[in-house]
Design a protein around this nucleic acid. Sequence first.
DNA 1: AATTTACACTAACAACTGTTAGTTTTTGTA
DNA 2: TACAAAAACTAACAGTTGTTAGTGTAAATT
Lengths: 196, 196
Amino acid sequence: MAKIKSKRNGTKKEVIVETAAQLFREKGFSATSMRDLAEQVGVEAASLYNHIQSKSELLQEICFKVANEFIANLEAIESSQDPLLKKLEQIIRFHIRMMLDQYEFVYISDYEWRHLPEPYLSNFLNQRRSYRRRLGTLIELGIARGEIKHIEPYVAVLTILSAISGIESWQRSRKTISAEVLEENMVTYLIDGLKK
Amino acid sequence: MAKIKSKRNGTKKEVIVETAAQLFREKGFSATSMRDLAEQVGVEAASLYNHIQSKSELLQEICFKVANEFIANLEAIESSQDPLLKKLEQIIRFHIRMMLDQYEFVYISDYEWRHLPEPYLSNFLNQRRSYRRRLGTLIELGIARGEIKHIEPYVAVLTILSAISGIESWQRSRKTISAEVLEENMVTYLIDGLKK
DNA sequence: AATTTACACTAACAACTGTTAGTTTTTGTA
DNA sequence: TACAAAAACTAACAGTTGTTAGTGTAAATT
């Protein structure tokens, strides 16, 4: 058996996925070639296939890893006893922090999922639809309980999630504003807009 | 000279750009081939070059057409005498309607500009940065005048524009909600979140 | 009717695509 | 030190990429 670890990063496959995420984010999935990726990893293109099965497997790993983290978080929060506005704030903060800490992965899951092959594509979209529905239900419940102002839940969910996705633009920028200020201001904006 | 008009759409070049916009939105710029585009237009790939200079010219036309429309609108609104919250609402509504009426074009300008070649890329990004700064200035002024609550202008602009970009997801969906409801609810959410 | 112009076509180019087969080198274990 | 597994390498594949050159044709202008 040869070494399983490379650098301090984990398995070589993890290094490849990580590097792929960087490139997919910079150039897009389609515009990134396996030779680009190989060069960045420091290896010949054919050698990548000792660790992965295909280019699209890389995209799958990235998209579903992110999706699973969001779903797991939602499940944890749903089963808590906090007021609904508090729950929503926790969810929003989780999304923002994911966008801050796992920028490349989340970006790809947000913008490059289109290039997933079937049946992964349908699978991914179903998970996403279900996730958004569950968020919508939280808001609906908040309205029914008088904790949240009257608003179309679908639109609220769309607005919240899209706004947070936009943090990718902050990531690419010269960052005149700190991550903390960004988080606090965005949370305030999005939560205050829901209050009665 | 041969016919300049094709269908009722305008010049053949316009038909090509329009069709390119559809494909770029569906599959992304990189994943769309000139042969794909040619087939959709009903012509051989080489024939496209009687009307356009290159694939990237198509992207340029789309991105800058959209950018110019937004800039023109901003200029018109800036020079009005309305209260700042009213100005912002007008801008937000304009963005929403652009996303509703010119979905393919705006989508590409939002998400596919990365594939612009230099010097167009820098040019585009400069215009965008300047546009956002001007929006930020409006918010800053609104805060100074006590019309808008205290919030980091950069974050407010980012939140507003990103939220509106997310309408692309509504466009792809089964539309259980009408365009009017979408617009009204999103405006309410984004404007109320700015009120003191 | 003759000529010019716009625009379609076919064929081809060189470069690049993801991926496989087969071979050699490296590396951890016995 | 020998052995076996892991992972690198080279070479090649069949298909696709954007684009150009050269040619034919139909239509508008003279």
